[in-house]
């Protein structure tokens, strides 16, 4: 329809203004959001996957009781036999090299996955929001300094930094998390800065300034609520991607030590068993397939959830 005049009948919902509002409009919006979310089957699948993983992480001690209470992330192993053994009553998913229990690894690995995903993305997000807001809103010298620093971090090669840090700090999930924070925050900062630059030009920001609202309040009340959604969506997708990257680093031997309940580490341990002996190529399918499949499922879940979140929260997609 006509785009000059924004008095557009399609954008305004039909409202009976004489009716008093029966419930808080924020609740109405929330209900609308939920309804919008439910309408999309893919988002339900994503949500279910993530919910199942969450439950597994929460109830890990019941699903797979640890042998050593103080160090539950250590996968128990039945003897030292080299070759993996197939699924059995004792080991529902079979065992890996040195008889590490795959089932136990998967269950407690869920906790590791959430730990990696959440800590990396959350810290990146916090750094990104703070630095991005300053750079985007104030501009000028702040912007210049912050953006040049992000440029510097962009220039660091991922693997080299990862290896250097592992050498400095020792093997382990902590090192992986730190590497991904150091190299991840510039992306968020840039994204938030870009979003804020477009929002900053809106008239309602000027109106707030003209009515004497302080800068901090303008950022918190006007700018972030209107710009942070797109970043949150990317962040939710990145949780999956982060776990994937961590798994890749583990696979390269930069992650947790042998026997630690971490999916990437498990795949890495099974490197030698991907292909079986000449007469039975697929004899050890379970050692790689099960952890690999779980990683893929985890990433898929977050991606579907992120996609659904975009449909729901993005003002352009929301009412389509």
């Amino acid at each position: 329809m006509n785009s000059v005049n924004n008095e557009n009948s399609t954008s305004a919902i039909n409202v009976d203004y004489e009716q008093p509002v029966s419930q808080h409009p924020a609740l109405t919006e929330a209900i609308f959001t939920v309804k919008r979310f439910i309408k999309n089957p893919l988002s339900i699948i994503g949500l279910t996957i993530i919910l199942v993983f969450t439950l597994i992480a929460i109830f890990a001690p019941f699903l797979a009781p640890p042998e050593n209470e103080r160090d539950p992330y250590r996968i128990p192993h039945d003897g030292w036999t080299i070759s993996p053994s197939p699924p059995s009553a004792d080991h529902p998913f079979g065992t890996m090299e040195q008889q590490y229990d795959i089932f136990y690894g998967i269950i407690w690995g869920t906790r590791s996955a959430f730990k990696i995903g959440f800590s990396v993305v959350l810290i990146n997000l916090i750094i990104g929001v703070i630095l991005g807001s300053i750079a985007g809103y104030y501009g000028g010298l702040f912007d210049e300094i912050i953006m040049r620093i992000t440029d510097m971090f962009y220039a660091l090669p991922f693997l080299v930094v990862a290896m250097a840090l592992v050498v400095a700090l020792g093997r382990g999930l902590q090192s992986i998390i730190i590497v991904m924070i150091i190299l991840g925050w510039p992306t968020y900062t840039r994204m938030i800065r870009g979003d804020i630059l477009t929002i900053r030009e809106k008239d309602y920001i000027l109106a707030a300034r003209a009515s004497g609202t302080s800068d901090l309040k303008i950022i918190i009340r006007h700018i972030l609520p209107n710009s942070v959604y797109s970043v949150l969506i990317v962040a939710s997708m990145n949780i999956g991607a982060t776990v994937l990257t961590a798994a890749a680093l583990s696979f390269l031997g930069l992650g947790a030590e042998t026997g630690y309940a971490d999916w990437g580490q498990m795949v890495s341990m099974c490197r030698n068993w991907i292909v079986g002996p000449p007469d039975a190529r697929l004899a050890y399918w379970y050692v790689v397939f099960i952890p690999g499949f779980v990683i893929a499922l985890f990433v898929l879940g977050w991606n579907l959830l992120g996609d659904a979140a975009r449909d729901v929260f993005d003002p352009k997609m929301r009412r389509k």
């Binding site: 924004n6 954008s11 409009p25 809106k202 008239d203 309602y204 000027l206 109106a207 707030a208 009340r221």
Partner: peptide, 16 residues
Amino acid sequence: QIVFQDPSNSLNPRLL
């Protein structure tokens, strides 16, 4: 005070 040209641009869509 000021009144802007385009009211759809000058009111924060996330505020009551």
